[in-house]
Structure formats: C-alpha cells, structure tokens
Amino acid sequence: MADIAQLKNLSSQVRRDIVRMVHAVNSGHPGGSLGCVEYFVALYNVIMKHDPKNFSMDGKGEDLFFLSNGHISPVFYSVLARNGYFPVEELKSFRKLNTRLQGHPTTHEHLPGVRVASGSLGQGMSVAIGAALAKKLNNDKSTIYSLHGDGELQEGQIWEAAMYASANKVDNYIATVDYNGRQIDGDVDNVLSLGNLKAKFEAFGWHVIEESKGNDLECVIAVLNKAKGETGKGKPVIILLRTEMGAGVDFMMGTHKWHGKAPNDEQLQTALAQLPETLKDY
C-alpha cells in the first residue's frame, strides 16, 4: 500500500484528470466526480484486491466494483487508468468518437475495468447483488463494492434490491452512497427528500455506517476498512459517505451547478492552479 502522502498526490492528479477531461470535450460531469475522488483512490489503491494488468470479466478471486451512478465516469476512468487498467493517454479520448471511454461507462467497447453499463440510474445495486451471489456460489470469498448517487436513491429499483439483499443475507457486499445532497435540479432535499436515510436502510435490514468526512482520504480508508469488518455477518453493509460535490475546486463547491457542466478555458486554469500536478498529466 502506498503511503498517505502518495495517495493524496494521486488524488490531486485524479482531480486534474477530471477537469481536463470534461474541459476537452466541453461536456461530462465534474461535480460528482470530484466529490468521489477519495472514495475511488481508497477503494482501488488501498482496499480492493484486484488485478489491473489481467482484467477478466469474471474477476474470479478478485474484489469487484460496480459504479451505479455512471455519469461520474471521469473519476472512474482516471482511477482505472492510474491503476494500470488501460493507458493513461487514453483519457484523451473521453467522449470522443470511437472511444472506449464512453460518456457513461460500458462494457460494449471492452474497456478493462468496467463490468456492466451504467448511466440509466438505479440498476447497479441489483447487478452488484447478482455478482455477490455468484461469488457465493463459486465459493469465492471476495467482496463486492458499489457506488450510488444520493439522488439515484429516488429510483424504485434501488429499494427492490435493498429489500432483497437483507432478506437473503447478501453479506459479501458493501454499497456506498455518495451523499453530497445535490442533484441536477438542486438540493436533494428540495427535489425529493430522502428523509432519514440511515433509518430507511436500517429498516430495510442493512448495517449502516455513516461517515461525515468523505473527502478526507484517511477517514474514507478507515470507514471502508470498518465496513469490511462488518461483512460476513448476515447483513449487507452500506456507507453513507458525506461528500462535497466539486471538492477540490473552490468555485465548483457549494452548488449543484457543476453537476453536468464543463469549465471554460479560464475556469480550467483556475481549477488547475488549485490542483498540483503530482504525477504526469496525460
């Protein structure tokens, strides 16, 4: 495991990748991507047992991750590339014709690291549960991870899946909610409030862990380790991870307006000035 300083450097570079990717094609979703950098870095560089150099769809013996809120593909692509799933150079092709880095992640172009398409929201928890059950059938002791937007929880399929997972003791599975409180039309509380999310998941029979510092790398690593400690106990586990949409770029924080908007040239420079280049830019 890399030390924390190295991981923080990686996080800064991932943030640079994100804003440069969306700027280059004047489209994509920087806000949620920036908010989930620590989660992805912690998961792929510390927590998961995985094999970037030999990607296989089945991932036998590996921990698997499913991104349900597919629109935050920039952070996913950057972390996959920086882990060696595909060349970092390929980030240049994001959202361009003939790319493997489609606007929303897909298996269709055979990008290593992606195991299911996502974009239409609410489907990833079901897929993750299926993969978790396949692991059990195969006597594979690995863990399944998934990430969901908080706005995404307004989709009914999430609750079908949540009900199934606890009723059937899918306990080799850790879901995480990117709990940033914002969605396209504004604050989640104003669009359609989730109410008491902790109580809701507890009522659905999950082991719920709250983490208020979702952009503090050490806290994220700690909470994921804590969640791992709760697997195998007969309950699915969910982390409600409080993050800041746009984290790391001052003018993108505190608003929902950067959910799906790219910075212009000047804004890009302002953002990059706040994010040291620690590895090489692609």
């Binding site: 769809m57 089945d58 991932g59 036998k60 698997l64 499913f66 195991r115 299911v116 609410g122 489907q123 990833g124 928890m125 079901s126 897929v127 993750a128 549960i129 299926g130 993969a131 978790a132 059950l133 396949a134 692991k135 059938l137 195969n138 594979d140 009914g156 399929q157 079908e160 899946a161 009900m163 199934y164 009723a167």
Partner: peptide, 20 residues
Amino acid sequence: VGIAEANMIGMAAGMTIGGK
C-alpha cells in the same frame, strides 16, 4: 426475488459475472 422484476433482471446480469 419476489414481485420485483427490475431487480431480478439486474441480479441476473450480475450473476453472469462469475460465469453463471
């Protein structure tokens, strides 16, 4: 899976990962 067809289809997709 109970009366939850959307979840059923998603679960089935997930189960193929692992060779089912």
